[in-house]
């Protein structure tokens, strides 16, 4: 299996996910030598990329000589396990992956895909970035975002609460409050 030295060393995984989309600009940005060096410098040991329908193949690496170990796959039925084992998540702007990551309390950088038309999902990522629940980047600015990032400044996302909405529905339908 893996190198003995790698196994005993504490793993710090960066997990990249593009969901069911095609987002080569992100995968290419991640695959750049400078960005991988920066991640290494920040103490991350592994990089795992879920690349979806993209055609750009990142360079795999076993991570010998202390550099970042890089691996990738296209799809999996559930990325929950990958998210759970990650120390940092870099995701496309899909609301599904955003909330799944925030619920697990993992630091998150959302990278918006500027190739998509009518990109309303950008709104959500920007709003959550303004509220300091995540960091927001574009493929060209991702390297800078990672260099400058201070994960301590991120705030946990509060648990969702459907009761205000449910109360209004009950009231409208004339259900007694109990």
């Amino acid at each position: 299996m893996e190198d003995q030295i790698v196994e005993t060393k504490e793993q710090k995984l960066v997990f990249v996910t593009v969901g069911t989309t095609r987002f080569d600009a992100l995968v290419r940005a991640i695959d750049s030598q400078e960005l991988k060096k920066e991640l290494s410098r920040k103490g991350y040991t592994h990089l795992l990329i879920q690349m979806g329908r993209g055609s750009y193949m990142p360079t795999k690496s076993k991570g010998e000589d202390g550099s970042l170990a890089v691996d990738y796959f296209t799809f999996s039925s559930s990325i929950a396990e990958n998210l759970r084992s990650a120390s940092l998540v870099i995701s496309h702007a899909g609301s599904g992956s955003i909330f799944e990551t925030l619920r697990l309390g993992k630091p998150l950088i959302v990278v918006v895909n500027e190739d998509l038309m009518d990109n309303h999902q950008c709104e959500l990522a920007e709003e959550l970035a303004e509220r300091k629940h995540l960091l927001f980047a574009r493929p060209q600015t991702l390297h800078q975002t990672i260099t400058d990032m201070n994960l301590e400044s991120l705030l946990p996302y509060p648990p969702a609460d459907a009761t205000p909405c449910a109360k209004l529905i009950h009231k409208f339908l004339g259900f007694p409050d109990d």
Partner: peptide, 16 residues
């Protein structure tokens, strides 16, 4: 799909 259903099911769990 996806997010829509998750939101709806969260609401349903709070309804009578």
């Amino acid at each position: 799909s996806g997010g829509h259903t998750a939101e709806m099911l969260n609401l349903l769990s709070a309804l009578h």
